[in-house]
Simulated scan of single mutants.
Amino acid sequence: MLVHMLRFRFRDETTEEQRAEVLATMRRTAAVDSVSFATVGRNLGNPAEGLTHGYCVGIADLEALERYMHDPVHLAGDPLIAPHFAELVIGPDLSDDMNPDLGAEIMAMHERKAAMYPEWAELMATIPEVRFA
């Protein structure tokens, strides 16, 4: 099982209505067939970090992750979501798969996706602050 987590803060100019739309879009993405379990909502971590919301999906294996990354629902959702992020923290992700190369394999999948969909890579680059935990 792969568990993928995002924590984020909305841009100041994002309205409450837009925030609700972003969270609904994220819930649609989290409901695709390749996802085993998911939650989208408030971040209950340290308020001093300023990260207000979170997204967590459980994905069975690398094959399911590949399907998830290229699912049309996921691809259609990102352009509706990313423009509203002021800050995005990716991870920490975790897995019960003890393959020492798992992290590198996942990163290679992301790099292939960015090469396949350059507009997606450009979209992700518009988020003012992105970091990996």
Rank of each mutant, 00 (worst) to 15 (best):
V57K: 01
F132H: 06
A20R: 13
P83I: 00
K113N: 11
T52N: 09
F37N: 15
P100L: 06
R67I: 04
Y55F: 08
R131Q: 05
E63T: 12
H70K: 11
K113T: 09
H110D: 09
P79Y: 00
T25L: 06
R131D: 04
F37Y: 10
E122A: 14
V35W: 10
Y68V: 01
A125H: 02
A30G: 12
P79W: 00
R131V: 04
E16P: 01
L88D: 00
S34I: 03
H84F: 05
A108W: 07
S36V: 14
L51W: 00
H110A: 03
M5I: 09
M109K: 12
A60T: 14
A86Q: 13
R11H: 09
R11P: 07
R7L: 06
A20M: 05
E105Y: 01
Y117P: 02
Y55D: 07
L65G: 03
A20F: 02
A133N: 04
D96G: 08
N43A: 12
E122Q: 07
G77R: 04
R67D: 00
Y68P: 02
A24P: 07
T15C: 08
M124I: 05
I106R: 09
A64T: 03
E87F: 05
V130R: 11
E21H: 08
R67T: 02
V22M: 13
T52L: 12
M1E: 11
M69C: 05
V22L: 06
P100S: 10
I90V: 14
I106P: 03
G41E: 05
E122P: 06
P128W: 13
R27H: 04
V89D: 15
D71I: 01
G50H: 00
E111L: 14
T15F: 14
E122S: 15
D97L: 05
R19P: 13
E13P: 01
T126N: 09
D33R: 06
M69L: 13
S34M: 04
M1T: 15
G58P: 13
A121E: 10
M107W: 10
D78E: 15
V3Y: 15
R42D: 12
Y117N: 10
T52M: 08
M107S: 15
E66D: 13
L62M: 14
P47A: 14
G45C: 03
A86P: 01
F132I: 11
L23P: 04
V32A: 10
I90D: 06
N43P: 01
T39G: 09
M69T: 00
T15E: 08
P118F: 00
A133T: 03
K113I: 11
M116H: 15
A64S: 13
A104E: 13
L123W: 03
E49M: 08
V89A: 08
P83C: 07
V130E: 08
D78G: 10
Q18F: 12
Q18L: 13
A31T: 05
R28A: 14
